[in-house]
Design a protein around this nucleic acid. Structure first.
Length: 586
RNA sequence: GUCCCGAUAGCUCAGCUGGAUAGAGCGGCCCCCUCCUAAGGGGCAGGCCGGGGGUUCGACUCCCUCUCGGGACGCCA
């Protein structure tokens, strides 16, 4: 409908050009908006106000001329000038009704489009270190990332969802060592657990199962384990030095093969847990990309070689630096440490090189907001690799701050004191969790009150939307119980009986769905879709309370049924896209 | 100190790439089930859109500045 009005206005502008009223080279962007107030018609444009200056006349006069050279069209019943120079369009009711038939014909495909034209987009998200279960902070990234990806898919992009697994590096060594120490405890050794180790209960569980399976195979006396190890922080030492020494000790005592066993056991259990957790949350990935493979297959070396070849690497103080400051970063960054190990950032450069090589037209990274300082250096790396860094789009997600009532819940992965995504799901359910997470703008701080979210009294907006869907289903069941049958054709032929204010409002809202979906997708703002669905549900509930659908008059009844079934379809399309269930009864 | 994000009703937040009288939910008060699930609906009260400048026909929206919150600034990942 919008497109149609744009075309009509374009024709009018062309006509005015040839009359010499408007300048030839003018090609204004034509803006059509839904009106907020029905007294202003259905659509409006600010075209006259935009062009008034260059046409050297006032907006209302110009609007007059635009209207008079507007071609006749059967869908437009009235055109008015209002306010400072808005041109308001009133659409024929018959044309408005068409949306119901369109929704019925397209079904669950209604709203989908090919705006993306099949362009390849990669969305990388969650990518939490596999050192423990996902917590509620990761949950937000998961919900947001999958929503963004699914929305882009819906408007015709070819989307690939990916999880980058940080299965290399010091954190993983700390994990392996933590497991080993718990294992030693399991064997009966007396161990003072490092303050910097992973303290979660899941570590003990992994240790327990290793002990159960392998007995004392990995056991060493605690005296040997702690011999000459520098003090931990509580004893006045440095916790980092302490844990690094323990890692070295683990590697020495166990040897690389046995150490790798422990490492691998930890990784596979935790990663398996994460995968299952996400799957139950309705989040799936095409690719789980391992950081370690980048190191093992030489990609990291290759990436550094390319940077070196372009003259972006130099040596200083025993380390290798990338001169990212030449490319917009605030300072240069180390890529190979003085101990010969490459940094996390080096892996990241290789990873993005890999993404580029895979030929994505657009790369979207979803990161926690605390990583925003990384954006310039990654973009710098992409430029250094000869790529267009505008291909990379980093979306930031603020952490959710948890509250229990008025009390802030402290969270730290190390201390093991955190609320997991799994706990959240079991308490509030998948639907509520996803809905809540995506309800807010991603870069907005979010207060997540567990008490409120876990309370059985439902102030939860997800039910409001789901209930609208269930209510339509209920009406259809009632129809059946009354021994009536739905007559689709009869309803379609009598849509013109839908003249109540509530009905036109609902129809208008339905017609906004494709636009809402498109905007939500292109702006990476799934919350816009949520807001749309709430508006739609509200329109429906109001209508439901004001009018009886199952009237004795079969023509009116079937017309109304067609309308509410269209509403049901859109509710289902939107909720399904967000991976939220559409219950038939509640 | 530099950078990022935020500041809108008592609370939590929207405000659709600058538009007409700033909205919703919750909380408060008042109404609506002989009627398709009241997990619903209707109404009332509640706002210097953080302050101040600027651009514009027009600003919650864009620019500058200040104030106040949150976060980031490692040879950690």
């Amino acid at each position: 409908m919008k497109q149609k009005l744009v075309t009509l206005l374009q024709q009018s502008v062309e006509a005015l050009k040839s009359e010499g009223i408007l300048e030839q080279e003018l090609s204004p962007k034509i803006n059509i908006d839904h009106t907020k107030d029905t007294r202003h018609g259905d659509f409006s444009t600010n075209l006259a106000m935009i062009l008034a200056k260059s046409a050297k006349t006032n907006p209302r006069q110009l609007a007059e001329k635009i209207i008079s050279s507007l071609p006749e069209d059967s869908t437009v019943s009235k055109v008015e000038i209002a306010g400072p120079g808005f041109i308001n369009f009133f659409i024929n009711a018959d044309a408005q009704f068409q949306i119901i038939g369109q929704i019925h014909n397209a079904g669950n495909k209604f709203g989908l489009s090919d705006i993306g034209a099949g362009k390849k987009v990669q969305v990388e998200f969650v990518s939490a270190n596999p050192t423990g279960p996902l917590h509620v902070g990761h949950g937000r990234g998961a919900a947001y990332g999958s929503a963004v990806a699914d929305l882009l898919q819906a408007i015709g992009y070819n989307v690939s969802k990916e999880y980058y697994v940080n299965d290399a590096g010091r954190q993983m060594d700390i994990l392996a060592t933590s497991i080993w120490l718990r294992y030693l405890e399991e064997c009966g050794e007396l161990i003072t657990f490092p303050s910097n180790g992973y303290r979660g209960e899941y570590i003990r569980e992994i240790a327990f199962s290793i002990h159960k399976k392998a007995g004392n195979e990995y056991r060493h006396p605690s005296e040997l384990v702690i011999e000459h190890i520098p003090d931990d922080e509580p004893q006045g030492g440095d916790k980092e030095i302490h844990i690094d020494a323990l890692i070295d000790r683990a590697k020495t005592l166990l040897g690389s093969s046995l150490y790798h066993d422990i490492f691998q056991a930890g990784l596979s259990v935790i990663l398996g847990d994460i995968k299952q957790d996400l799957e139950e949350f309705g989040v799936t990935f095409q690719e789980w990309f391992s950081e370690r493979t980048l190191m093992e297959d030489g990609s990291v070396k290759e990436a550094l070689k390319r940077l070196d070849k372009e003259g972006y690497l130099y040596q200083k103080e025993g380390a290798t630096w990338f001169s990212s400051s030449k490319l917009g970063d605030e300072k240069d960054r180390v890529v190979v440490r003085d101990n010969g190990q490459s940094t996390y950032f080096a892996s990241d450069i290789a990873y993005h090189m890999n993404k580029l090589d895979r030929g994505f037209d657009q790369i979207i990274n979803i990161w926690g907001a605390d990583h925003h300082g990384y954006i310039p250096r990654v973009k710098a790396a992409m430029q250094a690799l000869g790529a267009d860094d505008s291909k990379l789009n980093v979306l930031l997600v603020q952490f959710a701050v948890l509250y229990r009532g008025k009390e802030k819940v402290p969270m730290s992965t190390r201390s093991g004191e955190f609320v997991t995504l799994r706990q959240l799901r079991s308490e509030v359910g998948k639907d509520a969790a996803r809905f809540f997470y995506v309800m807010r703008k991603s870069e907005q701080h979010m207060d997540f009150d567990l008490k409120l979210a876990t309370s059985k009294t439902n102030e939860n907006p997800v039910f409001y939307v789901q209930y609208a869907h269930a209510r339509v289903c209920s009406v259809l069941r009632q129809l059946d119980e009354k021994g009536w049958k739905r007559d689709l054709l009869l309803g379609m032929e009598n849509l013109n009986l839908l003249t109540e204010d509530h009905e036109t409002a609902l129809i208008t809202t339905l017609s906004k769905y494709p636009g809402a979906l498109e905007r939500a997708a292109l702006q990476y703002e799934p919350h816009q879709l949520i807001h749309y669905l709430r508006e739609l549900a509200n329109n429906f509930h109001t209508y439901y309370n004001a009018h009886q659908f199952l009237t004795d008059d079969a023509t009116l009844r079937n017309a109304r049924l067609n309308l509410i079934c269209a509403a049901k379809q859109i509710l289902a399309n939107g909720l399904t896209l967000l991976n939220i269930n559409t219950p038939e009864s509640m």
